[in-house]
């Protein structure tokens, strides 16, 4: 029983993290039709910006109010989104909306290559550490084990993020328009939706979510070159399990992968690295386009 609980808690923590890093990817794909291979790099930029910003915060008297560092983290992610999203979307991606989806992959692969080196140029190759926000909340007791409270913060933030995205899409006017675009892009265009605005907004949200994922992760890891390279792969697996473009799918995929991975870590550690692909393969055997499939009509 204890083991089960441990797996569940670990799985939820990891799943929560997975959801945050993948929900932006699936949102951008749903609206723009572009599978953003640079998503991981944006995550990395979020982590680096956070490391820098939080470092500065504590260097200039942040100790007096350490909880403020959480606001700094969110602010760092917002700044990343505001600076980078318009640049990429207006300057580059919008040229490719009418093209094949594979071209989107190639273009964002190019962006990935550029950003990976840009990160090294800006922040250098030595790892950065910002442990303060991680230790700030102390420990909590969960059953037989102690967890760093920050891990539970990740779960809470992830749930809030998911709710916020859901609320935005289903309860606000702009969100409903965006949902309509996800559902049927051509139809929305003919209905007079200003897609330019919707695309920029969606991409901005995607970049923010990627950067925010990085910001949230930065205190838990050593921020070093290459941290984003892996993220895109796991995030992709999560959203393909859920169905490309589906927010609910990303949530379900994240939880499934999170719990499977936790189970593997505790039961069969040697499988840990590819359990995610195993889950993906099993899902795809039964649902070849993921659990929540985007309906595709085709006419002769």
């Amino acid at each position: 029983m204890d083991l089960l609980l441990v797996i569940l808690v670990d799985g939820l923590i990891y799943g929560a993290w997975l959801f945050i890093v993948s929900v932006g990817l699936t949102l951008v794909f749903g609206v723009l039709g572009i599978l953003n291979l640079a998503h991981g790099s944006l995550y990395a930029i979020g982590a680096y910006s956070t490391a820098t910003a939080v470092g500065i915060y504590f260097a200039y008297g942040g100790d007096a109010f350490p909880l403020g560092s959480y606001a700094v983290m969110a602010l760092a992610a917002i700044i990343v989104a505001v600076v980078i999203a318009p640049l990429l979307e207006r300057g580059l991606l919008r040229h490719f909306y009418h093209r094949d989806e594979v071209i989107g992959v190639l273009v964002t692969y190019g962006v990935f290559l550029i950003l990976e080196d840009a990160i090294k140029l800006i922040w250098g190759v030595d790892p950065l550490f910002v442990y303060e926000p991680y230790d700030l909340l102390g420990m909590v007791e969960a059953g037989p084990l102690f967890y760093v409270a920050y891990d539970f913060l990740v779960i809470a933030v992830s749930a809030i993020t998911g709710f916020a995205v859901w609320y935005f899409l289903n309860r606000t006017r702009r969100g409903k328009v965006m949902l309509a675009v996800i559902h049927d892009r051509e139809m929305s265009q003919t209905m007079g939706v200003n897609v330019d605005k919707v695309f920029l907004l969606a991409f901005g949200a995607g970049v923010f979510l990627a950067a925010f994922g990085g910001a949230l992760t930065a205190p838990m890891i050593s921020v070093s070159p290459g941290i984003g390279v892996n993220v895109i792969i796991v995030a992709f697996a999560v959203i393909i399990i859920g169905g490309l473009g589906s927010i609910e799918g990303a949530a379900l995929g994240a939880v499934m992968v999170g719990i499977s991975r936790a189970a593997s870590v505790h039961l069969m550690p040697e499988l840990e690295l590819f359990i995610i692909y195993f889950v993906m393969a099993v899902v795809l055997i039964f649902r070849p386009e993921g659990i929540f499939v985007r309906t595709q009509t085709r006419k002769i």
Partner: peptide
Amino acid sequence: PNTWQMVLGVFLLVIIL
């Protein structure tokens, strides 16, 4: 050594664009 991927990326984008 730290910008060679960037060169590739720019090159790739230029070709596609």
